[in-house]
Structure formats: structure tokens, C-alpha cells
Write a protein that binds this DNA or RNA. Sequence first.
DNA 1: TCATTAATTAAGCAATTACCTAATTATCTT
DNA 2: AAGATAATTAGGTAATTGCTTAATTAATGA
Lengths: 121, 121
Amino acid sequence: MEDETFDETSEGSSVGAAQRVFHALSSAPRRKILAYLSASGLTAGEIADRFNMSKPAVSQHLSILETAGLIRREKQGQFVHYSLIENNLVNTLNGFVQEVCPVGRPIKKESQARARAKELP
Amino acid sequence: MEDETFDETSEGSSVGAAQRVFHALSSAPRRKILAYLSASGLTAGEIADRFNMSKPAVSQHLSILETAGLIRREKQGQFVHYSLIENNLVNTLNGFVQEVCPVGRPIKKESQARARAKELP
DNA sequence: TCATTAATTAAGCAATTACCTAATTATCTT
DNA sequence: AAGATAATTAGGTAATTGCTTAATTAATGA
């Protein structure tokens, strides 16, 4: 009973990095924010304008995404500019897939298949 | 205001497939279950034995993973055998990364880097 | 058939989440 | 310095989560 291999509490801090990333991604509004930021950096206000949600609510989502290391916050005067940090997202998801799926096979193949599908309409 | 592009409610059913997968992955115990199943199929009881949690609690986690299409349930006599469905996991995560990160670059490169790192100790 | 084992469903509860409005902080403009 | 704007923090609440124990369903074996 009780194998600690995947127990994230043994990652140092009581909440692991992977846990933070996966939790951040579990919310539709937060994934939507990431999608917006994939096109270009935006201020907090510009992001909030795209949602039917109060600014403080959006601010909270931004904070969760930032804590997860998925976005970066830069204060510019009275504005706060947010932008995507791609590495953490890719590393975490890829690392997880590598862990769960037989090595080598999964992502590379998929990625290639998708790339091909996009090129041949 | 209100762009529907990423609104998952427009995916047909009121909760989208991506939402179910990401929600399923947001729980450490559930990710742990996936990791166990990546090595071999297991019965509900064998899985529950690996946790400090009641059997019903584990059963619920299994049900969430099954609904997300990440694992498969097969009744064999009085036992229920669970096993991994890799495709859905890989497709969903990869699709999301493709959406959020500049096309082509992210996952293939990462995957190769990781594969290399594993081969050269 | 009756007891045993595997697993799930049901009912209930403490803790957390996801939002809201109001208040606060910081910056810019005049 | 006063007023406007951008954003966050603070405080509160309804709904949801993540577990628990007890009850139920289903299959096995004496």
C-alpha cells in the first residue's frame, strides 16, 4: 500500500509544479486566456474585455496562470501586460505524456500527422 | 466582447471533450492512476490498494477517467479490469499545445530532446 | 443456497472553488 | 493636488469537490 513514486508532495513544496500546471489548465476560461495570448501579448483589461466576467475574476485566473509559470506579467506604467511562456506548458504536458505513454511513440507521430493534415487541405 | 472561438459550450454537449480530459488530469490521484495503468492493466481493487483512500473514492476517480475517455473498463467475472487508452490523452494534449504554441515547433523538438536524453546516460 | 469477495451506488459533510461587489493601490493627466 | 483609469486585494456566498461510511449489486465457491 502507498507507493510514493507519483506523490507530488515529494516534489519539495507541498504543491508540485505539474499539479499547478494541470490545475491551471483544468479551467475553460484559463485555456481561453492562453489561446488569446498565443496570438499576442495583452493587458489585463484587454483580456477581461473578452469575457463575460468581472475584472477581478479574470485577474484571479491570470494569477493562477502566472503561478503555474504559463504566463508572464510585466507592469508597464499603469497597465499590466501579460504574455505566454510556452516552454513550461510544452515541457509539462510532454513530460507527462512521455511518462504515461510508451516512450517514443506518442507525441512525435501525432505531431507529424497533424502537421501533414494541415499542409494538405 | 465575448468571443466564442474557445467557448467549449459550442462543442455540442454542454461539457466538451477537452474540458473532461483536462479536468480528469487536474487531480494528482488520477494522474497517478494513469501512470500505474501505463505499466499494465489492473483491477479496481489492485488500483485502490495503491492509495490511502477508500475504495469508493478510487472508484469515483476511475469513473471520471473513463468518462474522459482516458481509460477503458472491462468486466471480467467479479473483477473489473481497467486499462489505458493512450490515444485520447495524446490527441487532446497535443491538439491543445498545437493550438496555443506556434505550430510545428514545440512538441516534436521537445519529444526528440527527451528521447535523446534518455538514450545517453 | 448461503456466505464471501469485488465493485459500485447512495447519502452526507468539510473544504475548496469561482464568482460577485466594494475597497484599495498605483499611475497618468490636467 | 485632484480626478480618472487600470488593476489588484478583500470579503462574502452559492455551488462544487473530494472524501467518508453504509447500503447495494453481482459473481464465486462451499
